[in-house]
């Protein structure tokens, strides 16, 4: 098995579906000639032609609106938002039309919207956000947040073949930093199944996306202190693997939910509430959340570091729970 970066894995998955299924096409800002702002689609236009790798005008509304129409007519569009932050312009098409069309008229809307998201490189308030919880809240949309290269490929293929609109949050900070083995052949990773990243007995740490790596480092640090942390990588938020989380909490009786998105109304709230509702009698401590503070993402590197949950923050949170 070849070792690939997270970014290559996304690119591979995309290419696999472009080759396999003629209904699949790519549309986005600078995805064609330029190969995409992050070079995910480099060489795609040469390989598949300008009609299947479309450079769109600077209008997320038009991109997602066009995708919605094409999907309703039987195509399998893959849209790229240059940054996940820009998706707010496409809110209406996604939330009002795409998310409800299947329910309202029975028409499938198989769109995949790729969303380079997350911070950690001084992108500032418009290029660093993690808006996944806003969409996980909308019935009719699916939300995917891969953490590993293998999942990035398998979840992207699953997203493209899914008959519903899927928001695929790819974390920019993982693009070239994370490398791992990725199978060459085509495969899918099903939605709604969490990945057991690390087994442990004392505390369940539930997270996704780039925070999986922050969690992992924290868990390693605590291992020496005799605190055994179990890390669950949710992989998808809509649907999310409630059973896996409850199973883990029933075992450990303590839970920490970690995300890079801001705290209030973040998806961690949903998870914490569910644990409180459905695993109350298993709890030996309050469910703890660690997330970014409720502010825009700061540009200044030290401020951004203070904003995004760091390994030390997670270590402190886990210790507090262990000592409770």
């Amino acid at each position: 098995m070849a070792v690939k970066t997270y970014l290559q894995a996304i690119s591979d998955g995309l290419r696999s579906e472009m080759q396999r299924d003629k209904r699949v096409f790519i549309i986005g800002e600078d995805v064609g000639v330029y190969g995409g702002a992050f070079k995910v689609t480099q060489g795609f236009q040469e390989e598949f032609g300008a009609w299947r790798v479309i450079d769109a005008p600077l209008s997320e509304t038009a991109i997602v609106g066009g995708c919605t129409g094409a999907a309703m007519m039987g195509m399998r569009p893959v849209a790229e938002m240059q940054f996940a932050d820009f998706i707010s312009c496409a809110w209406d098409h996604l939330v009002t039309v795409a998310a409800k069309q299947r329910y309202r008229a029975g028409t499938p809307v198989p769109i995949t919207v790729r969303l380079p998201s997350g911070g950690g490189f001084s992108g500032g308030p418009f290029h660093s956000q993690n808006p996944e919880s806003s969409f996980a809240h909308i019935p009719g949309l699916k939300v995917v947040c891969p953490a590993t290269p293998a999942d990035a490929k398998g979840l992207l293929i699953e997203a493209i073949q899914d008959p519903n609109p899927v928001l695929y949050f790819e974390h920019k900070h993982l693009y070239r930093r994370i490398k791992d083995e990725v199978p060459e052949e085509r495969y899918t990773v099903p939605f709604g199944e969490a990945r057991m990243h690390r087994e442990g007995d004392d505390i369940s740490l539930v997270t996704w996306g780039a925070m999986v790596y922050t969690a992992d480092e924290a868990a390693q640090k605590l291992e020496g202190e005799g605190i055994s942390v179990e890390i669950l990588d949710l992989r998808t938020l809509a649907p999310w693997d409630k059973e896996a989380v409850l199973r883990s909490v029933e075992k450990t009786s303590k839970a920490l939910v970690l995300h890079e998105d801001t705290l209030t109304g973040g998806f961690g709230a949903e998870i914490a509430a569910t644990i409180g509702e459905e695993a109350f009698e298993s709890l030996d401590a309050p469910v703890r959340r660690i997330a970014a503070p409720d502010t825009p993402v700061p540009f200044s590197p030290p401020l951004e570091k203070a904003f995004i949950p760091q390994v030390e923050d997670v270590v402190a949170g886990l210790k507090e729970l262990a000592e409770y």
Binding site: S253, F280, E281, S282, L283, D284, A285
Partner: peptide, 15 residues
């Protein structure tokens, strides 16, 4: 009161 405050019994311990 002094004595009451001493110990909180968590749900799992109670169970």
């Amino acid at each position: 009161n002094g004595r009451r405050e001493a110990k909180f019994v968590s749900p799992v311990v109670a169970r």
